[in-house]
């Protein structure tokens, strides 16, 4: 009974997907190939004396204790960003979905942070957390907390997580809101008539029906935390104190663009690529089975 539309022409399908393929090849596969190629080279910064060094760049990386340490940092950071980013935006989306009057204003305000560049988001939160003048650190001090993200690792981690979550909130919010609006009202109303409490309705009907959106956002948020957050780190903590907020992608940026160690930086990108590909495969393989489309 399967309905299938088939192209009669042999070349038309290829032509139709060609633009998309071109974009993917030029902007994804080509750079990825370049990274693979450069990761086995040692190069003078001005492009001269290129040398094939095999796995040396990788060996150097894994001999560096601080690099191994930053895997842990990255894991903690990504989990926190994904968890709080999705949790908060789901809460906001559920609330916004119930607002009757002025819903447009709420939604617009919540979508705003998405237009802010990561670096700007970082600087913004840095100002608010700056001791002793920042508004947040001022309030914290009044509460008896001596805020110091320059020397306290937990404070520094909190700072970059807050900035990263805030930056991604709008994106998550939009998708959750769209997901909520596509849930049939009749299901919820039927449950309400049966006497299910709002809390109960949310967990037994809304949340399971949202699972495709949640799953999609989980993948997106993990990728975001892994790749798009170096601007925030660079603008706030520079990976400090010590190396306690130096997530993997930040080191890629510093070694490649500040220290101009192309081989080492490319090797790190390859490692990062492998991790994210693995994570995505795992997510699709195991988590997707729990998703109800």
């Amino acid at each position: 009974m399967e309905k299938r539309v088939r192209f009669v022409s042999a070349w038309l399908p290829w032509v139709l997907i060609a633009p998309q393929m071109a974009v993917v090849l030029v902007f994804f596969f080509w750079p990825a190939g370049q990274a693979l190629y450069q990761s086995v080279l040692s190069e003078g910064i001005f492009g001269g004396d290129t040398l094939f060094v095999g796995a040396e760049n990788f060996e150097r990386l894994f001999a560096d204790e601080s690099y191994l340490e930053s895997f842990k940092t990255t894991a903690v950071f990504s989990l926190l960003v994904a968890f709080f980013g999705m949790g908060l935006s789901l809460l906001l989306a559920v609330m916004a979905n119930r607002v009757v009057r002025g819903a447009g204003i709420y939604k617009t305000l919540l979508i705003w942070p998405y237009a802010v560049a990561p670096v700007v988001a970082g600087v913004l939160w840095l100002f608010m957390f700056a001791a002793p003048m920042g508004i947040v650190s001022f309030v914290l001090r009044a509460l008896g907390i001596d805020w110091n993200h320059l020397l306290n690792s937990n404070h520094a981690m909190t700072l970059i997580v807050v900035a990263a979550v805030w930056k991604q909130l709008s994106y998550n919010f939009l998708f959750f809101l769209a997901g909520l609006q596509s849930i049939p009202k009749s299901l919820i109303e039927a449950a309400a008539i049966d006497g299910a409490s709002p809390w109960h309705r949310f967990w037994t009907i809304v949340f399971p029906l949202l699972s495709p959106t949640t799953f999609f956002l989980l993948v997106i948020n993990v990728v975001y935390a892994f790749f798009d957050t170096f601007g925030i780190v660079d603008a706030t903590t520079h990976g400090g104190p010590g190396k306690d907020t130096a997530i993997l992608v930040y080191k890629v940026y510093v070694d490649g663009f500040k220290a101009m160690d192309m081989g080492g930086s490319a090797a790190q990108s390859v490692v990062l690529m492998v991790i994210v590909v693995t994570l995505t495969v795992i997510q699709f393989h195991y988590v997707e089975k729990k998703v109800q489309y």
Partner: peptide, 21 residues
């Protein structure tokens, strides 16, 4: 040589000292 990296290393380690770690 590689002094950009060494400066960063110095910052990282000194921060650990100031923090008492």
């Amino acid at each position: 040589g590689n002094y950009v990296q060494i400066r960063t290393i110095e910052d990282e380690e000194l921060e650990q000292v100031w923090a008492g770690k």
